[in-house]
Design a protein around this nucleic acid. Structure first.
Length: 360
DNA sequence: AAGTCGTGGAA
DNA sequence: TTTCCAAGACT
């Protein structure tokens, strides 16, 4: 009968003793000035750390910068964010993607304000219990904001560990092994700087392609560098291909040149965000006249398509437009100059731009 | 526990 | 052009 194979022996537990010291020394010389980062020796503001870490989930530093500044300007303190209307937060988040993050951000602010006296808990365990805070973010806040020796495991750390030890198991199965390795390197001394340093190393030196090994402070310890195949780590499981989906959008313009928008359901894709009324999205294109438009009008099919790529499917939208439509109050009618004040995800921003370009 | 959930920039 | 991916979380 099939039975589980015995647990794989962990890799040798020996860690180069001064590896964290070399990493910290490198970090002291190359520390990047980021909008959310405290100065050397300064205490980080947990609110800033939390906000930045949520925004940085699967999102680049360059993209996050302006959003972080904008959020902090609008909601300088946690209590301000907790008191803000969700729609305002979604509007400010528009364009950043993964909108569940914004909904959980708001929830988390409310919970911390109401149940923690407006002060973030300083332990990984308590942080993990908050909405939108998973294993990585809990460890990152504990380390960066509270200087706790928590082990962070993000894409950067995974890559660095996989190369240092030439981990052959592919992601995501290799995560447990990589976490065990990362844990052995986490120092008791300056854990916050170590966490930021190793991420900076991954982001600027130990990069996915063309790693700058000549500039790396850990070359003496890197098995992949010795073997000359650093760029091939971490191994990754083959990913499924992205299906193509299709939909129709119905752009209604009233006599004042305003466009009709509606709110998507709170959960799921683009949850709680605004959209141009649309058909369901399916895997086959729509034929002319197949879908009844939301109102009777002189509908015109616009040339071309709006294409957009989501994480797990690609979407091609055909846009139909009708002008001089009576402004049905069931929709929210928004002027072109007011689009910045609604929670419009990028795909719908593209649809609106397409309408403006084709019907001008 | 594998699928869901955005976006834009780089290679 | 296509592919990859970036300080992951939730279900």
């Amino acid at each position: 009968m099939p039975r589980k194979s015995p647990a794989k022996p962990e890799p040798a537990a020996r860690v180069p003793e001064n590896l964290p010291d070399r990493l910290l020394a490198w970090y002291d010389r190359h520390r990047r000035l980021l909008p959310w980062r405290a100065g050397p020796g300064e205490r980080a503001d947990p609110y800033h750390v939390w906000l930045s870490e949520i925004m940085l989930q699967q999102t680049t530093v360059v993209t996050v910068g302006p959003y972080f500044r904008d959020f902090l300007a609008r909601w300088p303190r946690l209590e301000d964010l907790a008191a803000a209307p969700l729609d305002d937060v979604l509007t400010a988040w528009a364009g950043l993607g993964y909108y569940a993050r914004a909904r959980n951000l708001k929830k988390c602010a409310e919970v911390v304000a109401a149940e923690h006296g407006g002060v973030f808990p300083d332990s990984e365990e308590d942080l993990l219990a908050l909405p939108g805070i998973g294993p990585y973010t809990a460890a990152a806040i504990a380390a960066i904001a509270f200087d706790r020796p928590a082990t962070i495991l993000d894409g950067n750390v995974e890559r660095v560990m996989a190369r240092l030890y030439r981990v052959e198991a592919p992601l995501p199965k290799a995560k447990a092994e990589l976490r065990a390795l990362a844990r052995r390197h986490t120092p008791e001394y300056r854990p916050g700087d170590y966490a930021q340093g190793i991420m900076d190393l991954g982001a600027t030196i130990c990069t996915p392609t063309k790693p700058k090994c000549a500039l790396c402070p850990l070359t003496a310890d890197c098995a992949a560098l010795k073997a000359g195949d650093a760029e091939t780590y971490p191994r990754k499981a083959a990913k499924a291909e992205r299906p193509q989906r299709y939909g129709l959008c119905f752009a209604m313009i009233d006599r004042q040149g305003r466009i009709a928008l509606e709110k998507r359901p709170e959960k799921g894709l683009l949850g709680g965000m605004m959209q141009v009324p649309t058909s369901a999205w399916r895997d086959t294109p729509f034929a002319d006249g197949e879908v009844m438009p939301p109102v009777a009008a002189n509908w015109r099919k616009l040339d071309g398509q709006v294409s957009h790529v989501f994480t797990h499917f690609a979407l091609s939208l055909t846009v139909l437009a009708a002008t001089r439509v009576k402004a049905d109050p069931a929709y929210r009618w928004v002027g072109v100059d007011e689009l910045g004040r609604v929670a419009l995800p990028s795909v719908m921003r593209k649809v609106v731009d397409h309408v403006l370009a084709k019907s001008a």
